[in-house]
Nucleic acid binder design. Sequence first.
RNA 1: GGAGGCUUCGCCUAGUCCGGUCUAUGGCGCCGCACUGCUAAUGCGGUUUGGGUCUCAAGCCCAUCGAGGGUUCAAAUCCCUCAGCCUCCGCCA
Length: 424
Amino acid sequence: MIDLRVLREDPDRARASQRARGEDPGLVDQVLAADELRRSSATRFDELRSEQKGLGKLVAKASGEEKQQLLARTKELADEVKAADAAQSEAAERARALLLQLSNLLEPGVPEGGEDDFVLLETHGTPRDFAAEGFEPRDHVEIGKILGAIDLERGAKVGGARQYYLTGVGALLELALANMAMAQAVRYGFTPMITPSLVKPEAMQGTGFLAQAAENVYHLADDDLYLVGTSEVPLAAYHMDEILPAEKLPLRYAGYSSCYRREAGSYGKDTRGIIRVHQFEKVEMFSFCAPEDAAAEHQRLLAWEKEFLTALELPFRVIDVASGDLGSSAARKFDCEAWIPTQGKYRELTSTSNCTEFQARRLSVRLRDADGVRPLATLNGTLCAMTRNIVAVLENHQQADGSVRVPEALRPFLGKDVLEPVAR
RNA sequence: GGAGGCUUCGCCUAGUCCGGUCUAUGGCGCCGCACUGCUAAUGCGGUUUGGGUCUCAAGCCCAUCGAGGGUUCAAAUCCCUCAGCCUCCGCCA
């Protein structure tokens, strides 16, 4: 949710932001009009109500004929107050509904354009030259079979398309990655959290996932609950309706949860393997901080993502995601993409967004400092999404005989140096 | 799933039976000021949040007693629905 004051004072900035996202700039004017109506109807209600309260006091003191006269007026007033109240709350609701549709203002510097218009910021590591090593790399599906780590056939049999079982060493690999991620987060002072995957509409709405991403969210109609696509949702909503003391900020949480995604509109994309699935586990970093620290905090989250990928010895690059490809809450987003040998390209493994005050306003999370109460900023960043990390580790560290070398940093968590093919 | 109790401005709490004087009591904490070698203690004042008005501030107005609705000229107070927490029963990993 955007600050109405900012919107009133500088509507052009909001219009430009909407345009850059490929969204409707006219929405800005609808919001402004609705807000104007909201304010005028609120003023009318306030005046009537003030009169009603004043007369009410006189009624209490009066008696006899005087009282009857007062009651005649107050009865009339009561109807007017009621009508004004209804008009006021309707106007407020309409203004809020419109305001909720507006995406966050872009941070200056965000590259303009669509998915392919990102700016490449950095490249780390070098993809292996399998030709020079003398063998053709296998993709993660094949390696998964050889290791007895991934069972896609039975995943589809039981759960349908984009479902999978991790078996044996595959299951252990996921647990090891999760523990390694949590250990890193804890080392940097994050509070580890295991969060609900099932949340109420306010949490979903508040984090901005019921806007353009709505079609990818599972909704349980019988209970009006949503399955979260990331623990960003329960972590952001954790402090909903709270005022946090500024001296406690930044508050950093590392959430571990299942993530559910309908993957509507991605038919035919990544149909093979576990790159794109309906359910996966993820360790997510989340920060609450002062708005003026948000950009720096964003860089910190990015640095922690890079550290994790580096520890896994994966070649990757960092991109500055273009305006049209940002979530509605994000003012800016950086993705880390790891090299996937059998695809010959970099694929998103982590993503970190600066949501500035957008989510905090919707969820009513504020900070209190010497100057008073004001909204704070929220940021999120993937530390380790299990399935894609498994893909990257298996493919990048595979060896000619079908075994997979375990990166050094992961060994203490997995208890193995090498994943060996299982006898068939 | 069933029965009962509870929910008040950071925390605790008075008020709810019997509607108007609630402009919500008191304590703790916190902030400011005074006093004081220092600290402590004491005294005085302030201290929910949101919205509106206003160039800003001050001031003023409105809303806010878990949420929503109702009764009434008037609701923290009466009625209804819902939520959360607690106790007990049932079921259950």
